[in-house]
């Protein structure tokens, strides 16, 4: 069990392996889309890891990248259609970033590094844990951006009105894209200082 927990802390895909930053940061201005995105990536990563691992002995090595891309895009289309039918508002908000899960390097990286050489069930676990490790960072960043940037969490106001009347202002900078990068940089700094390896 312990070996699967690495991605949550000391092998975190975003903080340590620098994978999958691409589509991650644009969805973190609010908590809700970040959680939806995190879950989608987890599902896609776990399922495609599982299926590639099932097929690992039959895929010819020369064309494995194309096969991987096809399997991943199959699951991404599935997730995209599910989001459009059950969570329409979030899917509008995430727009192209759901599609960009296909080229998320976490997924390709895990397929190449893990699923091609391990049994299906442990690949499923590995994919899930890496997805969750990615989601964890996403949610932490989104938490601070939404709290400090709009004074809300999950679209509910948490900063009391009395603060605003007393002169408290939302930090508009937090909602802007560059702040996501600076927050991630800070999180990396903190985690390097605290997490033992």
């Amino acid at each position: 069990m312990k070996k699967y927990l690495g991605p949550l802390s000391k092998d975190n895909p975003i903080l340590v392996q620098t994978l999958g930053v691409c589509s991650a940061l644009a969805v973190t201005a609010q908590l809700k889309p970040a959680v939806v995105m995190a879950l989608s990536v987890t599902v896609v990563c776990a399922c495609s890891n599982f299926f590639i691992s099932l097929m690992r002995n039959t895929i010819p090595p020369r064309i494995r990248i194309i096969v991987q891309l096809l399997v991943v895009s199959f699951f991404v289309i599935l997730v995209d259609l599910l989001l459009q039918s059950y969570l329409y508002d979030e899917s509008k908000m995430l727009s192209v970033f759901v599609g960009l899960i296909i080229t998320n390097c976490i997924i390709m990286g895990r397929l190449e590094a893990f699923a091609l050489s391990h049994k299906p069930l442990s690949s499923l676990m590995d994919g899930m844990m890496n997805g969750l490790g990615y989601g964890l960072v996403l949610v932490v960043v989104a938490f601070f951006r939404e709290l400090l940037g709009s004074g809300t969490l999950w679209n509910h106001q948490v900063v009391p009105d009395s603060w605003y009347t007393a002169g408290y202002l939302n930090n508009g900078l937090m909602i802007l894209p560059p702040m996501a990068l600076i927050l991630i940089g800070t999180i990396i700094w903190i985690s390097r200082g605290t997490v033992k390896r």
């Binding site: 894209p177 560059p178 702040m179 990068l181 600076i182 991630i184 940089g185 990396i188």
Partner: peptide
Amino acid sequence: PKLQGNGIAYIITGLLGM
């Protein structure tokens, strides 16, 4: 030392973005 490498890279990208 803990900020070297990736940490500072993100922050610089953020500043460039601004």
